[in-house]
Design a protein around this nucleic acid. Sequence first.
DNA 1: CTTTGCATGTAAACCGTTACATGATTTT
DNA 2: AAAATCATGTAACGGTTTACATGCAAAG
Lengths: 179, 179
Amino acid sequence: MLTPTAKVILGMVRLGRRTGYEMKQLVDVSTRFFWTASYGQLYPELRRLEDDGLIAGEEASTSGRRRRAFALTDAGADALDEWLRSEDAGVYEYRDEGMLKIFFWDGLAVEDRRRILQLSRGRHEEVLRHLEAIEPAVRRRGGGPYAVLRSGLALHRFSIDWLNELEAELDRDREREVT
Amino acid sequence: MLTPTAKVILGMVRLGRRTGYEMKQLVDVSTRFFWTASYGQLYPELRRLEDDGLIAGEEASTSGRRRRAFALTDAGADALDEWLRSEDAGVYEYRDEGMLKIFFWDGLAVEDRRRILQLSRGRHEEVLRHLEAIEPAVRRRGGGPYAVLRSGLALHRFSIDWLNELEAELDRDREREVT
DNA sequence: CTTTGCATGTAAACCGTTACATGATTTT
DNA sequence: AAAATCATGTAACGGTTTACATGCAAAG
């Protein structure tokens, strides 16, 4: 079985990211919103995958700076395909402290509740802005990354709309209080 | 600063869940979809919170079976409110292996891609069924838990719709291939 | 009398982030 | 000359899940 980070690495190598650094670069602008990877996971896992014969590394220093480039082995390509075709939906985790605050917000004043909604919305807006910024470039490439990007755009827009709706309800509740 | 589990506990105590077991019960049917807690976190954290004076525990055995019931102290109520009013959106994590598969799916046949979408959708449908089942009971209570439940319903329905749309696109792509 | 539910807890393993360390190269 | 970028790695820490251990009480 592949570890979560191994899946990212094998996929990234097939996409042409040959060094750990390049993989991290792409993760940070693309998969980051539904799948992260830090250097602390990446480099040890690269070594493990090489030991297991799923990737092959070679010295690729262009100058005095050391650099290791990796390529998929046949076994690695098989492992990647096997995972992609596996009958297992895999990890799905959604953890949202904003939701937890809403769950427990019953004692709070309307203005405090509004603030909770605004903070949550602010974060979705930040992500949305980033996704919108890279949209033109990713659209040109198309394929899986573009499908995923459109998912992200749709999801965060939906969340923003939903939070706005909840905020509108808050106003209606207050009017009822005043009346 | 409160640990994530501490936030759940303080909130649950205010909602009237007095024992670790009761808290876990409610977490499992309600917050589970955006915030989990296992016994391995719950019981040690209960002890820590009691040591810190945020909750007070008392023996509450109704018979031979041991049972510790907790209540919020004034300091605990303050800490809970402080967290709820904090200018920090807190943890937001979304990890989805289905999305990762889509990101890397470009080498796959249309049928393999369809399967990936179906598996993801299946999971959302499972969650949706559970949320729909508890909806009537939660609606009666209203408040934060009901707002959160409606969020969950909306989010998972949206995800299902989105995955269906992607699947329809797949069919259009294949027709184009055949034509 | 056996299974399910109530109830509390611990230990090990796993996963992941953060901070740190190092040093070369390119850009300003 | 300084700052940013390329590039690789480790150590410490923290949070979470899983599996295990224990035992009483109620229901079938």
